[in-house]
Computed example of a mutant assay.
Amino acid sequence: MDLHWYLRTLEEVVIIALSSTFSIQTSRLEGLTGVWVGNQKVAALGIRVAHWITYHGLAVNVTTDLTPFKWIIPCGIRDRRVGSIMGLLIDARSQSCLAHGTAVLHNLDDAGIIHITHRSLIQQFSRAFQIEFHHKTISAPILCERKGKCLTKETQQN
C-alpha cells in the first residue's frame, strides 16, 4: 500500500513500452509526475484512491494534435512542453537518427501507431502488476444484448 510506488510503476510501464516499441528513451523528472523526453511530457498520470482501490488515469500522447497546448499551461508546468510519440518519431526521421527497427513504424497511419502503443502498454502493465490480460472480440449482437437495445438501420434513421 504505497501510492508513490504505484505512480512510479505506472511511469515505468510507459518508459519500458516506449523504449521497447519505439526505441524512444524516456525518463522521469525529479518532483514531476509523468514520463518525459527531454523537456517534453509524453505521458501524464493521475490517480484517485478510495479505500485502497485505485482509479487511475494514464494519458499517453500518441498522435495527439498538440496545437491547443500552445495556449495553456499543461499541469501547471510553465517551463516544459507537451510532446507526442508521433512527433518524436517524425523528429527522429528528419534528423536521420532512427534507432534500429523503428523505420517500419513510419509507414503506419495514426490508427496503426495507436494500436501498437496500446498493445505495448497493455503488455508492460500486465508484466509490471503481474496480471494476465486476455483480449476478446465481442460481436455487435452480444453488445446489443448487454445494453438492452440495438441500433438497426430503422432506429438510426429515426
Score class of each variant (00 low, 15 high):
residue 78 R to F: 05
residue 123 Q to M: 13
residue 114 I to D: 00
residue 60 V to Q: 00
residue 117 T to K: 09
residue 120 S to A: 15
residue 66 L to P: 09
residue 145 E to Q: 15
residue 106 H to A: 03
residue 92 A to M: 14
residue 88 L to G: 04
residue 131 I to C: 13
residue 88 L to N: 04
residue 129 F to K: 04
residue 119 R to D: 07
residue 95 Q to R: 07
residue 111 A to F: 06
residue 77 I to L: 11
residue 63 T to K: 00
residue 69 F to I: 00
residue 147 K to V: 15
residue 142 I to N: 10
residue 141 P to K: 05
residue 138 I to G: 04
residue 67 T to C: 03
residue 136 K to Q: 14
residue 116 I to V: 14
residue 128 A to D: 02
residue 133 F to W: 13
residue 72 I to V: 13
residue 101 G to I: 12
residue 103 A to C: 02
residue 82 V to L: 02
residue 147 K to W: 14
residue 69 F to C: 00
residue 120 S to T: 01
residue 139 S to D: 14
residue 70 K to L: 08
residue 123 Q to T: 15
residue 84 S to H: 08
residue 128 A to E: 08
residue 144 C to K: 15
residue 100 H to R: 07
residue 83 G to D: 05
residue 127 R to G: 14
residue 148 G to H: 10
residue 81 R to G: 14
residue 131 I to K: 11
residue 110 D to S: 13
residue 104 V to T: 09
residue 140 A to H: 09
residue 134 H to E: 09
residue 82 V to D: 01
residue 141 P to L: 05
residue 71 W to D: 01
residue 87 G to R: 04
residue 138 I to N: 02
residue 75 C to S: 06
residue 76 G to V: 01
residue 61 N to F: 00
residue 107 N to D: 09
residue 98 L to D: 14
residue 84 S to D: 11
residue 106 H to I: 01
residue 124 Q to R: 12
residue 123 Q to P: 04
residue 73 I to K: 04
residue 111 A to L: 10
residue 60 V to I: 10
residue 90 I to H: 13
residue 127 R to I: 12
residue 94 S to K: 13
residue 130 Q to A: 15
residue 121 L to K: 01
residue 72 I to P: 02
residue 64 T to G: 01
residue 132 E to M: 05
residue 139 S to V: 06
residue 81 R to E: 12
residue 147 K to L: 15
residue 66 L to T: 05
residue 137 T to M: 09
residue 147 K to R: 15
residue 126 S to D: 08
residue 95 Q to G: 08
residue 70 K to H: 08
residue 123 Q to F: 12
residue 102 T to L: 06
residue 146 R to Q: 11
residue 72 I to M: 07
residue 62 V to P: 09
residue 103 A to D: 07
residue 139 S to H: 07
residue 73 I to A: 02
residue 127 R to V: 12
residue 87 G to Y: 02
residue 74 P to I: 05
residue 93 R to T: 06
residue 132 E to R: 03
residue 84 S to R: 03
residue 107 N to I: 04
residue 108 L to K: 12
residue 119 R to G: 03
residue 73 I to G: 00
residue 68 P to Q: 10
residue 112 G to Q: 06
residue 74 P to N: 06
residue 131 I to V: 15
residue 72 I to Q: 03
residue 76 G to W: 03
residue 125 F to T: 04
residue 122 I to T: 03
residue 62 V to N: 07
residue 75 C to E: 07
residue 127 R to Q: 13
residue 117 T to I: 03
residue 110 D to P: 02
residue 146 R to N: 10
residue 105 L to E: 04
residue 140 A to F: 09
residue 141 P to V: 06
residue 62 V to D: 08
